[in-house]
Design a binder for these strands. Structure first.
Length: 280
DNA sequence: AGCTACTCCTGGTAGC
DNA sequence: TGCTACCAGGAGTAGC
């Protein structure tokens, strides 16, 4: 599932192909991709606009639009489960799961391909409003060990659902939460306000290191969904310590990795490295 | 405040 | 082989 490292990879790779391009037209194959806006309104909003800065916030991709050099709204994309973005020549025929495409002035086409149709690719007037609820970037300046410790203490939630909550900290999903918690030797059901200062510090370090290494490896591809815009799989799946490794030995201690369900999500832990809370 | 359940979707797979 | 039933899961929402 695309999380921060996968989205960052996509943004970095499509940025040079999109920046400065003019949108000549839009074709919407699955209207719900637009998140409620009618295809006609969307087409009017984007056609003729020029793509400015291409950036990421959490798991969202943003393209600033301009008309005559002035701000003209934003494209806001989210890959959710199975979304893919790539830019290729218009001569290539659309594949079976193409939900939306933008025709560019250099003969290229930006394609949004999404098997499960959960992804979104919308036009928004105001990006600050659209992203207002998101917590800090886990690789940003605000996300310090002290911030994380204070944030954990101010809530009384199990660690995993809290870290998945995009209003707490944005960009983490099921894979990287499991990996970071294992790296920090913290059980996903530990209560956030009972985490010691050293453990919070450890968790902060593991969140950042996991995300940075995953970005360096262009994300994780363990099923048919995530690929880079060039069609390459990422390689961070080769570094997984627990995710998807249920029944196999923990790479730190050799105890079998277990699969639980926490917050309705498949959750992977080593119960020797990650001691369950006493309340369980 | 924070939990669970439900919705949106489809391809893959388990079970028969 | 071919059928059905079920599952994964990010985010939004409703209800408790």
């Amino acid at each position: 599932m695309p999380e921060l490292p996968e989205v960052e990879t996509v943004v970095r790779l499509i940025r040079p192909k999109l920046t400065g391009r003019r949108i000549e037209g839009a074709r919407v194959e699955w209207a719900r991709t637009l998140g409620g806006m009618s295809p006609a309104v969307f087409q009017r909003a984007v056609t003729g606009a020029t793509l400015g800065r291409i950036w990421r916030r959490g798991k969202y991709m943003v393209a600033d639009l301009e008309r005559r050099g002035r701000p003209a709204g934003h494209l806001l994309g989210h890959l959710r489960m199975s979304g893919r973005l790539h830019v290729d020549p218009a001569s290539i025929a659309p594949g079976p799961h193409e939900r939306l495409r933008l025709l560019l002035d250099d003969g290229g086409v930006l394609r949004f391909v999404d098997v499960r149709k959960f992804g979104r690719f919308a036009f928004v007037e105001r990006i600050d409003t659209a992203l207002a609820a998101l917590g800090p970037e886990p690789l940003g300046e605000e996300f310090t060990p002290a911030w994380l410790r204070a944030g954990l203490r101010s809530r009384r939630r199990a660690l995993k659902p809290l870290l998945l909550d995009q209003t707490f900290v944005c960009g983490l999903g099921n894979i990287y939460v499991d990996e970071a918690l294992h790296g920090a030797r913290l059980h996903p059901l530990r209560r956030s306000d009972r985490i010691t200062a050293p453990a919070a510090h450890r968790l902060h370090g593991r969140i950042q290191a996991t995300l940075e290494e995953a970005i360096a490896r262009e994300g994780s591809s363990f099923d048919t969904f995530y690929r880079t815009p060039e069609g390459r799989p990422g390689s961070y799946q080769d570094q997984f310590q627990v995710y998807g490794r249920q029944g196999r030995p923990c790479l730190s201690c050799g105890a079998p990795v277990r699969r639980l369900v926490v917050a309705q999500r498949g959750t992977h832990v080593c119960l020797r490295c990650q001691r369950p809370p006493r309340s369980l």
